[in-house]
Design a binder for these strands. Structure first.
Lengths: 340, 340
DNA sequence: ATCGTTCCCGCAATCGTTTGCGTGACAATA
DNA sequence: TATTGTCACGCAAACGATTGCGGGAACGAT
């Protein structure tokens, strides 16, 4: 546990140099001659020198840590984004600390603050659903770069990275139309959710473009978009007089709930009612029939988020950037909308 | 971005005290009178003082960060453990940095080293499958506390936390026997895997205890225990002359592969062949019939891992602890073994 | 009056690294 | 020769918190 630390001073003593020279040599400072630089680096190597991270951070006010906050780390899609974040961060020499907000707004702001106090160089956040009180988040912006991904909010002036939800939803609906569906229901979220709204507007746009009547009765809003709610809403949709012939659930889990109750009532999928989800979760190939859904390239989102964040961290200018980046999601057609 | 930092010195100046007094006051040092302690704390509060984490770590050689390494963060069970880790760590005032080894041994050792250099106070690791070259891991033990969880290795002298794999497997097999199954196959891992071996020995023990013949032909070993392999091995098991009447797959994903091919051949589950998995993954209730499996309390494992790790971190003695902790997993009986 | 305690608190060093500034050696230029 | 410039490096301060040591004040006991 003791293990005599190797420090700049030690290297300096051995080489009969000053610590400053050693430091500069290791950092490729132009003031230092090639010869000594080489000498220093060699010794450092052989002594297995590692710079004291604390002293370094202490001086430079840099931790090389980025903080990540997600609502629920248990969701498969979230983990794929996290994977992308970890990869890209490792490449760029950053470590990642992760927190889970459990969709609790208070916890979320608390975590933002802890992370700040803890000295992260930047924060990547995927917001909880009902993040309305932006006031708690805005102060962060002046202190440390913040980038939102996946669950974003256009009320916050910072760069944001999402799926092209609207377009992807549009494509999904168009696919349903192409296979002959004319009465397409949607199950979306009631609480304001950026992604839900985007997908909804893609839905509306597609219907309009194909001159299909929009019927409020088959536009279903739920509080939490879960498997259970999918079941409930499918039940509801079966009970109305003019049944839909397709159901677009804003989320795979809801779509799976829908499929499960349709099967319970022996409704043929996709002939009687087609179903499409959103996420390409791992469940979508386990359920039968396999679910048509939108694949979201999580790793790509994660990587991009890190890329933009580090850009902001290492930029010298202090202006808030405010880009909106969209990553393309792809419709994956499976048995729930298409029979071979 | 500038934002005049609040430091001990500033507080000291305002209160006309020395920084040392302020420091001690904030740390509840007995030398400081109640009155001044109170005064200092109040001012610190109102000034929104946060100790500079770098300076603190610099002095105390403590980062209050623990490193976590997992093979694959995408697995549901892994995320539940991570959740437990995050929760417990947050409570204890530690941050968590996570890395993914992707089941790559080289990456794993590299990550261990990076984390060490980075100054984590301790490391929690779930090992990659084929971690044989313990040599890369042993040096870590002298430098920083290490605890293994889930994927462990009894070759490494440190405390380890697992499910009671053997017992749980025993219970699963006993359940199969109780519902009348007499010829029970197992699909396990070929490569040495601590958990696989444990589950296998539970299987053997249960069969012996119930005087059931052990048949090598229905003991299947595979390289990677995946859904695909589940399908393949199910095919194989169907092809042998004395078919099994139950299949115990060491893993949910393999069990799901098994179910999928059994269904393809119109074999009744569980009447003809019962299936049980291990993990209680989220897939196990999506598949039909719903899968009987062993629920592993991931959060509990995570929490315990953190608890023991912090214990070691904060202990003053330097002796390597070497406890084996087992967390109980519970058999969850569903349709794949039991018809109502 | 002197001594010994106890209670509170300040001084100053310290951790390892970075960095502004200074300096000596030497070469180039006037 | 005197001046200027460049190169390569050293000095020392600084970052903010912690901590061993020492010391003054107050008080009681002798």
């Amino acid at each position: 546990m003791k293990k005599e630390l190797v420090t700049l001073k030690k290297i300096a003593q051995i080489l009969d140099l000053s610590t400053s020279t050693v430091s500069r040599a290791l950092n490729d400072h132009p003031d230092i001659s090639e010869a000594t630089t080489k000498k220093v680096k060699q010794l450092a190597q052989s002594l297995n020198y590692v710079p004291n991270i604390f002293a370094k951070g202490f001086r430079k006010h840099r931790s090389n840590i980025i903080g990540v906050i997600v609502p629920n780390i248990t969701h498969y899609f979230t983990t794929t984004m996290v994977r992308g974040i970890l990869e890209e961060a490792a490449i760029k020499g950053y470590r990642v600390i992760i927190s889970e907000s459990n969709n609790d707004v208070l916890k979320q702001t608390e975590m933002l603050n802890t992370m700040m106090q803890f000295g992260v160089d930047g924060i990547l956040a995927s917001l909880t659903k009902m993040t309305r009180d932006i006031d708690n988040i805005l102060p962060i912006l002046n202190k440390v770069p913040l980038i939102l991904f996946d669950k974003v909010s256009n009320k916050i002036p910072c760069t944001q990275i999402t799926i092209n939800d609207e377009e992807a939803a549009y494509n999904a609906i168009e696919h349903l139309i192409n296979i002959g569906k004319k009465r397409i229901a949607i199950i979306k979220e009631r609480e304001f959710s950026y992604t839900s709204e985007k997908r909804f507007s893609g839905y509306l746009k597609a219907l309009k473009d194909h001159d299909i009547e929009i019927d409020e009765k088959i536009i279903i809003s739920v509080d939490d978009i879960s498997l259970i709610q999918g079941k409930r809403m499918a039940n509801h949709l079966l009970s109305i007089k003019k049944r839909p012939d397709a159901i677009f659930a804003i989320t795979d889990s809801a779509a799976i709930g829908v499929i499960q109750t349709l099967k319970k009532f022996n409704i043929n999928i996709p002939e009687d009612i087609a179903v499409v989800g959103f996420s390409n979760s791992s469940h979508s190939t386990i359920i039968e029939p396999k679910l048509t859904t939108v694949d979201q390239p999580g790793e790509k989102i994660g990587k991009n988020a890190v890329k933009y964040l580090i850009e902001e961290i290492e930029s010298t200018t202090d202006i808030l950037t405010n880009k909106m980046i969209e990553i393309k999601g792809n419709l994956i057609i499976r048995d729930s909308t298409f029979k071979v």
